[in-house]
Design a protein around this nucleic acid. Structure first.
Lengths: 328, 328
DNA sequence: GAGAATTTTGAAATCGATTGCAATTTTTTC
DNA sequence: GAAAAAATTGCAATCGATTTCAAAATTCTC
């Protein structure tokens, strides 16, 4: 089935070395020879085996991108930017859905190591756990790793992280300054990122001398609507809610409207992440912009430097900002 | 840096063949030898080179997934299901963002061919063009290709397609039966899929003896809001709009509300695709469910059969159905 | 405990490219 | 037109695994 350069060589009456040199545009080939080989290459629809090439060149020209859930808009956007950037440079992206558990995430590190990726990108804070850390130390101690929204202090790991503590605290202060006195927090699944957001809320509440009220919802629209309704039923005095995730805020808003309350008059809402649909919602959602684009851009740049220079290593922090729309 | 099986062999005092047999759980190795080799394998964090392995085994154990835009929720969902399914079977997914132009899509076929993927999946109707077709014939004539939402009559290509003509026509009939007499259609970018939807609309309009009114919006919330407002300004008698894409319908609904019209009293809206956020919108969007899940499931199944049997080839059609919510 | 039968193990070829070095061909130079 | 210099080309080794076939070690049989 697959033609090899030997087949091409025979056809062209030259050696495999010559064919290889033509394919890779190496100098020192007579023009007429080059053209003849190129023609045969074209006519026979030859395509080089990247596996064989990778074996001798000791490189796969692949970037491994690990995402805990690619269906998450937030995550895929990060993967997309990196994919786009490196495809142009001739790299392929091995995008893998690394799953829920810590062990499964760690096993994906092994998979990337087996594929000998030139670099790995971890998208999402959920990778910040000990299994993953150990897997990196064991199987990719010398491969550049870029952590989007998390951090390991290993020599081959760089990172770009959002200061989510600050972001949530700022949202709290804004609500407080606009007169809200019963600001609740709707948390989601327990991830390092959500923990930081919660910390920001708790810290801000303490600083303003206010009691904290934290509810939890799974990461689904239905659960959030239920959790929001339950929160308000139990604490009718609530006049503002900060949500750990935009999606939860949007379906929460719907539940609030259905209860006959007004937004933002009775209750103000602030989501987190400035997701694409946060401005499509009705009313349009105010949100904490965690600067996903900046995070991804920073990752692409670091990745590029890290591939060029294995010693390279950097950690950047971006500061979230508040986007005010119709729910505040 | 990278250890090879020869390093392991030396350490264990055996030959590389033995190490290979242990790694691949081949029979005929003395228990004590196997355990010794396994221990060394573990202690040295050895990881096999898939490139070398692929070279001799003539397989990459990779599935290539081509998506025209991975940020599109609709597409990524399809890629996700396939990724999940095959990862368990030890395949990696090379997910590539194949870009806008026909030529760029075709060139990605070449890339997958170079990587010697075991199969390729094309997600989205945009791959249905001649450049891609020729690229498949030239570079992957024997690799199973599964086309999600499109079709080529090539021996190695299978497909799962939604009958979008029918879906849109059904939506039209529903609106007509509920008394609407000025049903407009908001189209989006010119893709094979959107062309079929438009056909369905035109066909249904003709069948009901009604005049067709087609507007076009680029695939962005802002454009759709503008296009919707313009449509209604030019044709105030409009009492229903079918949208080629849910997203456009959602931002369109916002524009309509902003004009002081009521939904569905003054204008009924139906989107297309039953996207995750269509039921989060306010009011909740009625939509034509193009059965994305079924499409993807069918693709996974066909993919599996095609990998097992290169002769395999099938074409399935799924029928969309109407999901009625608050905008009708 | 010798010889046969069976189980384990290893040497060497292979997969499809790339590349250093030597050999060959072509071009220059006088 | 012969020798030197320069430009082309090919041979053979290499990358890191797998696998066939033969050799070596072990177990069985009488």
């Amino acid at each position: 089935m697959g033609l090899t350069i030997y087949d091409i060589a025979r056809e062209a009456g030259v050696s495999a070395s010559t064919v290889s040199r033509v394919i890779n545009s190496r100098p020192g080939i007579r023009k007429s020879t080059r053209e003849r080989v190129e023609r045969i290459l074209r006519e026979s629809n030859f395509s080089v085996s990247e596996a064989a090439r990778g074996l001798v060149n000791q490189t796969s020209r692949m970037i491994g991108i690990l995402v805990s859930d690619i269906r998450n808009q937030h995550h895929i956007e990060g993967a997309y930017m990196i994919e786009q950037h490196f495809m142009q440079k001739g790299f392929c992206s091995l995008i893998l859905n690394a799953g829920e558990s810590d062990e499964s995430k760690a096993s994906y590190i092994r998979i990337l190591a087996s594929r000998r990726v030139n670099a790995a990108v971890l998208v999402g804070s959920a990778f910040q756990n000990d299994s993953v850390r150990r897997a990196i130390e064991a199987y990719m101690p010398d491969t550049p790793v870029i952590f989007q929204n998390g951090e390991f202090s290993l020599p081959n790991v760089s990172s770009a992280v959002a200061d989510e503590v600050h972001g949530t605290a700022e949202a709290f202060s804004y609500l407080f300054d606009s007169g809200r006195r019963h600001i609740a927090y709707m948390n989601s699944n327990d991830t390092p990122s959500n923990r930081k957001k919660l910390d920001g809320y708790l810290k801000a509440a303490a600083e303003h001398g206010m009691e904290a009220l934290v509810a939890v919802s799974e990461d689904s629209p239905e659960r959030s609507a239920e959790a929001t309704a339950a929160l308000i039923a139990a604490h009718p005095e609530t006049d503002a809610i900060i949500y750990a995730i935009d999606l939860l805020a949007v379906s929460g808003s719907r539940a609030i409207l259905d209860m006959g309350l007004r937004i933002p008059d009775d209750i103000a809402l602030i989501g987190t992440d400035n997701s694409p649909f946060s401005m499509l919602s009705n009313p349009r959602l105010s949100t904490i912009d965690t600067k996903l684009r900046e995070l991804s851009t920073a990752c692409s740049e670091m990745l590029e430097k890290a591939i060029a220079d294995p010693q390279y290593n950097e950690h950047v922090v971006v500061t979230p900002s508040l986007v005010l729309r119709e729910t505040t």
